[in-house]
């Protein structure tokens, strides 16, 4: 990871110095373990604050919309796919961007690490050679990184950026033999009552903070449907039906656009597996429209096009 960080700093510095970009967006080391902060730098002398390791879970594409300047940005597989989605949806122009591609081996899931150390207080987490060393008051434990990966990273099929101007390192091998939708299939095998029970229980702790929505780079609407007042589609109290309405519509707004970057789930302060909603849509988009979001700049998203012989069996 050190080599990545050095290369990022170096590239950012030269891009800013040469005036190729006005701002460079990356991460800096966080103040708490397993958490790095999205960070923008415009002063070439401050690029040494940039940092990269497996705790860069927040999607940087959040910070691209409505910008008119030239931006340097780092992007791993999923973030690069979100850049493509932004380009397709006219949120940013390719010419504005200098993309420093990052072949990614996945992000560490802070929840998995805390679980693995039995919820003892963690003071430091280090990474070396595919291992994660967790330190706390009076303990030090080592885990294989693959055992503490974020769930979406463990199932990731596109670790390498799909769009970039430069790569920080050689591409990493893509994961093979992964059954991406295993959890969705498990729910599909349940009956309706069981599914309703599963999802209501899942969101029962939701506090409607909208971290999942705001962490999502796809959520850039000027006025979100939850904020609409006339008509008001969803109540604002923590009534279970209102909470469910929010989750269904939030997910549906991501239909055919979600890259499964996992930012929503990582952001949730209550640990709700909000990806269970979007994953079903990803599965359907793949099965019905052979679509994976953000893979190509020259294809319109599935909800924006049609085929005469589209799936029609559900219509009488």
């Amino acid at each position: 990871m050190k080599e990545y960080t050095e290369k990022i700093r170096e590239t950012a510095k030269s891009l800013l110095k040469e005036g190729k970009v006005d701002i460079f967006i990356g991460y800096r080391k966080g103040t708490v373990p397993m958490m790095n902060e999205p960070f923008a730098v415009s002063d070439p002398d401050k690029t040494d604050l940039l940092y990269w390791d497996s705790n860069c879970g927040m999607n940087l594409c959040n910070y691209l919309t409505k910008r008119t300047d030239r931006i340097g940005i780092i992007a791993n597989g999923c973030n690069s796919r979100n850049i493509v989605t932004h380009i397709i949806e006219n949120q940013i122009k390719r010419e504005q961007l200098y993309i420093l591609g990052i072949p990614c081996t996945g992000m560490i899931d802070p929840r998995a690490v805390r679980r693995a150390v039995k919820y003892r207080e963690i003071t430091d987490v280090e990474e070396s050679n595919g291992r994660v060393i967790v330190k706390g008051d009076g303990f030090e434990e080592t885990f294989e990184k693959k055992d503490v990966l974020q769930k979406n990273c463990a199932e990731c099929l596109h670790r390498n950026p799909v769009i970039y101007d430069e790569l920080v390192a050689e591409k990493v091998p893509e994961q093979e033999g992964i059954e991406t939708f295993r959890d969705v299939k498990k729910i599909e095998a349940m009956g309706s009552d069981e599914r309703w029970g599963f999802f209501t229980r899942m969101i029962s702790s939701c506090i409607r903070c909208y971290a999942c929505r705001n962490a999502c780079p796809l959520c850039y609407c000027t006025t979100c449907f939850v904020d609409e007042a006339q008509p008001q589609w969803v109540g604002k109290s923590n009534d279970p039906t209102d909470t469910m309405t929010f989750h269904i519509l939030r997910a549906f707004h991501c239909a055919g656009r979600c890259t499964d970057c996992g930012a929503c789930e990582r952001a949730c302060p209550m640990g709700i597996n909000v990806r269970q909603f979007t994953k079903k849509l990803n599965k359907d988009a793949l099965e019905l429209f052979s679509w994976e979001a953000g893979m190509r700049e020259d294809r319109r998203p599935p909800m924006d096009v049609y085929k005469v012989d589209d799936y029609n069996d559900f219509i009488r």
Partner: peptide, 16 residues
Amino acid sequence: EEAAFSCINCGTCTFL
């Protein structure tokens, strides 16, 4: 402005 760069304006801090 610089300090607020990374904020995503969710309600986690206020609700917790």
